[in-house]
Design a protein around this nucleic acid. Structure first.
Lengths: 188, 188
DNA sequence: GTCTATACCCTGATAGAC
DNA sequence: GTCTATCAGGGTATAGAC
């Protein structure tokens, strides 16, 4: 998982995976008959990890659903900062790197995106009453992922978080235009 | 250029480039001492092509600066449709594929993004009077690129233009909230 | 289940005739 | 400038002893 995330699929060799796992290539092939099967297993791990490894830490002390969306995006900002902007979303890297992926691989990548988007959509549903009746929550959730992926890509390319931050600022401004005050009358 | 765009950098071999160019690998190395130098030349070609190959065709019959932004995005939608959603922005693919790029390579990729963003920013400046005084036009232009890149990435992964379209719909809604009517009083 | 050894192929890059 | 031939190294995957 770590090597695919850091270097991508093609640039990671089985020999390197074995070395990092302190095993031999023969042992790797005992568990995974091909490199692609190993990739599929990694993609399944990512999907299974979205909730416990990504959402739960991001949302530990936050209950407001809209704040949760921006806390999730803030996690990605942390990934950028921690890596001096070398970070790229692992799924995004694979999605652009693999050009004619096996259908099974492509579906696993799509499942990762879909699960992420659905988690954001649930936040939006919780905030339903504060959003315009006409707002399409699935579109809006898709757009949050779009913003994250596009922002991370640019920040990585410039090796500077500024374009990511700019994207989040604009998204925040959009949300501030969409949201009406809380039913209790509190300011946003 | 075509092979790097379709298959990425690592998955394209010099032998394949030579074959498609109806030349021999020896001849390729006469012009480009390394594969990386060839990549740099391709990135320069992309930068030089943004105006004549991308913006001019997209804007041929459109003068309204805001419409121009969405016409540019519509071009990317065409690329998706023409390729049955196998399209990926060539710069975006390279930006996520190359993990420790040579500084010269990274700067060329960043220059491509910057030039694209600046073209959008100029459209926004033309529409300055219709936008809120507080709007940061550079941020907004960055956000348009973010939307394109994130939308293309998802559409390619799902092999379906819907997530791209959803992203554009939401961006349009945002712009409709930002824009005030034209000074002449025409509706938007 | 794990190990060493290796088959077989493709890669980027080079040599040197023409 | 272009050609053929090839080097040296690395890739995925396999074979077979233990």
């Amino acid at each position: 998982m770590r090597l695919f995330a850091e270097k991508g699929y093609q640039a990671t060799s089985i020999a390197e995976i074995a070395r990092e796992a302190e095993a031999n290539t023969g042992s790797v092939y005992f568990f995974f008959p091909t490199k692609q099967q190993l990739l599929i297993a990694v993609l399944e791990q990512y999907c299974d990890g979205i909730d416990p490894m990504l959402l739960q830490p991001a949302w530990a002390n936050i209950s407001d659903p809209i704040e949760r969306i921006f806390a999730l995006l803030e996690r990605y900002r942390s990934f950028l900062i921690e890596t001096e902007c070398r970070y790229g979303c692992p799924i995004g890297i694979l999605a652009l790197e693999l050009h004619e992926p096996d259908p099974q691989v492509r579906e696993k990548m799509a499942a990762n995106f879909a699960q992420w988007t659905t988690a954001v959509e649930r936040c939006l549903q919780e905030a339903r009453a504060r959003l315009p009746e006409t707002a399409n929550l699935r579109d809006l959730a898709t757009f949050v992922l779009t913003t994250m992926e596009g922002g991370v890509m640019q920040a990585r390319t410039y090796r500077d978080p500024e374009t990511f931050d700019a994207s989040i600022r604009v998204l925040k401004n959009y949300f501030s235009l969409l949201l009406r005050p809380l039913p209790t009358g509190e300011p946003q």
